[in-house]
Amino acid sequence: MRTTLDKLELGKKAKIISLNNSNIKRRLMDIGLIEDSIVFCYLVSPLKDPIAYKIKNAVIAIRKSDGKDIEVEVL
């Protein structure tokens, strides 16, 4: 199932399909968010945003507004 990263449920894994925001694309690629890599929804902050994902063994917090530009395939 395709969705965007911000909608990935807690505890679910997904594969990155594409990064659509060119402004932060490079930054996200540098921290390991790159096409075909796997993310795991690890933590939701108490105010629901940001959300922390396990990406290549590191836990990285991303705001929903950034996550909505990242297309993923839920695994």
Partner: peptide
């Protein structure tokens, strides 16, 4: 407006 934000939660 707020810009993008990424923060690593270190172990």
């Amino acid at each position: 407006y707020p810009s993008s934000f990424t923060l690593e939660l270190s172990p």
